[in-house]
Nucleic acid binder design. Structure first.
Lengths: 255, 255
DNA sequence: CAATCTTTGTGCACGCGTTCACAAAGACAT
DNA sequence: ATGTCTTTGTGAACGCGTGCACAAAGATTG
């Protein structure tokens, strides 16, 4: 059956490493916060702390975008906000459809982080006729039957799937056939898509399982399980910035 | 200020690489599906396809757990389900609290994927007195004032933060002080936690921004933007299993 | 203008993760 | 029992990402 896994050898988008791209939104958020406080410039050290990363890493990340800093001073906040926004493509308008308006879909529709970043919820789509017409987050839900019409009519290229797992692949196929080329999938399924379509997956259960793994290690290490956790003595919250287990290997991935 | 980033040199949990741990839940889900269909054994090739990964990677991943396969045959589904569950710590009961019962919190409370994996929603907590006592997903919401009591009373070690960004750090501090040592954070903020506490972050907006980046590349590459996408000719959905942009560098990370 | 101080930008080395490719192991047929 | 065929388990090579450490660049002060 020969799988068919082509595995493109890291097309390295015009030289910007994927790892860097994944951090740009992080920097952007920190910079936006600084901008709102009218801070004119930041050093790599400060910004790195705000974004929760290493300062050397941050500088290297920025070096891929060009030399936007001034030695001895730091980075111009406004300028950097613009550069990163442009690089991420957030200066243009991205219509997005959300398919599956259950609890999660409604949460996503209400999520403020979208609108503030150039994303516009173009439509909410659900298969339940009982929902059709009902407004969620101020937007009337439309029926799945009209999916193709909506996508094509509004030139939507990004789709969010928040349906049950069983419906996900079918919805995905229809989205792709209608012209969607980027999909954010919340359903716990592996989606099959043709070449040229990007899929990012967010699985809440997987994140918890990874936490459980590390949690288990903590309990079962020093004391042999049992009443171990009864030691109760928990280090009080300090601002130590050490994070996470060890490596950064998250569960969200293109697939 | 010397950052303070200790960066533990990858404590490599008893030899299991983080990247592998992050994939175990993926395998587990595929195996569970097979188990429900009463499939006795799978080859690495088949299972890899079902989980959306490379078969060599899968075999190497399993090799860290031990030699659970039979050459010429494959892996025993039931046995593997058990081994992975045990490794991930899912054979024990993990009480979880969800703080912030807005749209997202409610969605999480209703999410079936938790219960089916050894996770138990021990309590829902919200700062809004109007919500207190109201049942969400069959569980009455409790007030933030009782947070410490709840955590300690039920020996909760995993907390989910689904509050607005502004409240996240404060909630985090209280959770940690009360004994929580693993946190899944949905608020768009960098959380500061003491050593020994794991934080995983899920940021919906970041995922979309990464998609936008790749989407922009697609449009601006072959044809110079403009009516480029009017070419409409979209490759029909096939079962080609090529996934994602290129490298696997997701936006969810310990921090 | 010269000296000093701050902060960027990056060359280099190292380690983790991925992939290839193949030998060893076992099933199965004769 | 012997041979063939399938599939695992892994050694080795490679590439990406990270972090260190420092030279170059510019601000700032005297």
């Amino acid at each position: 059956m020969a799988t068919g896994r082509s595995h493109r050898p890291a097309t390295r988008s015009r030289g910007i490493p994927e790892a860097t791209v994944a951090r740009l939104p992080l920097y952007l958020r920190a910079l936006t916060a600084l901008s709102e406080r009218s801070v004119p410039t930041v050093s790599s050290e400060e910004l790195a702390a705000a974004a929760g990363v290493n300062s050397a890493k941050l500088r290297k990340d920025f070096s891929y975008l060009g030399s936007y800093g001034t030695r001895g001073v730091g980075y111009d906040v406004e300028y950097l906000v613009y550069q990163i926004s442009r690089e991420l493509g957030l200066t243009q308008d991205w219509p997005v459809v959300i398919v599956g308006i259950g609890n999660l879909g409604a949460a996503l529709a209400n999520y403020g982080g979208f609108a503030s970043r150039g994303f516009r919820v173009a439509a909410l789509i659900d298969a339940d006729p009982g929902l059709t017409g009902k407004p969620v987050a101020g937007i009337p839900v439309q029926h799945t039957d009209d999916l193709e019409k909506i996508i094509k009519g509004d030139r939507v290229s990004i789709g969010v799937i928040a349906t049950p797992a069983g419906a996900a692949q079918q919805v995905c196929d229809r989205l792709v056939a209608a012209g969607v080329t980027s999909i954010l999938n919340f359903a716990p399924t592996v989606l099959a898509v043709p070449d040229g379509v990007d899929v990012r997956k967010v699985d809440l259960s997987i994140e918890l399982q990874i936490l459980a793994f590390h949690e288990q290690r903590k309990s079962g290490e020093e004391t042999a399980a049992g009443g171990a956790k009864a030691t109760a003595a928990v280090t009080p919250p300090t601002d130590s910035s050490d994070q996470g287990p060890d490596g950064d290997v998250p569960a969200v991935m293109p697939a």
